[in-house]
Amino acid sequence: MELATGSTTAAEGSATVPSTGSGTCQTVGNIHARDPVITVRGCNVHYGETHALKDVSLDIGRNEVVALIGPSGCGKSTFIRCLNRMNDTIEGTRITGEFRLDGQDIYARDMDVVMLRARVGMVFQKPNPFPKSIYENVAYGPRIHGLAGSRRELDDIVYGSLERAGLLDEVRQRLDEPGTGLSGGQQQRLCIARAIAVSPEVILMDEPCSALDPIATARIEDLIDEISRNYAIAIVTHSMQQAARVSQRVAYFHLGTLVEVGATDRIFTNPSHRLTEDYVTGRFG
């Protein structure tokens, strides 16, 4: 396992990282965003025995792209899945901490998960369009949330979302063909169109380009640039270049802790923490 080297690094680094549970921020850099839409404070996640996230605090600002980077297994997916409660579906998960969406407690008893997921959309690592037509893929969300009053309105939403996802021109003639018949890059853009069709406030993307070729990746990055004017975006990526290209802020995770947060150009040019430096300079992972 590649993590074997990682654990020794963590032991060395633990001197600089305060022990967990203090409730104070152990992260280097500024976790605050100017105009936060999501705020997370002291988040701990356990999968049974595994302590997957340790006391993580982070803001995600409006109209901002935050890139989450870090070695495999460090808890990036776990973190973003907490934000729309996708971890609820996993048996034996324990989540503590404070999660707020626009000041509203995400884990409150009266928080409607269906509503939450309409406001916090998600794009997965592997493109996963529904085995239905392209039109149905995009129309499904608005339909179950009752966003369109008529067929005309629904059409408008579908065409608009496909347009913004940069897919409309490629699929205009084949809207009733299965979404799974598209190429990988087109499928991923379809998934993005599906996510933005319900007009979420935040879009979570878990390695959206890891299954795509450079050209498709470039298109998705353009798309992220484009839609970040209207949405807050948290994107998990393994590509430092991608993080540098699309994000305004970068958060570096390591073995369940959030090590450093900062403006993208500073993290890549002048990281404060040794672990971050090792990672972004390619000495680790």
């Binding site: 997921r117 592997k126 085995p131 998934c191 996510a195």
Partner: peptide
């Protein structure tokens, strides 16, 4: 049925 289908549906807010 692949779990990705369930995730996709839950992810856009299907109950």
């Amino acid at each position: 049925v692949p779990p990705s289908v369930r995730e996709a549906a839950l992810g856009i807010g299907a109950s």
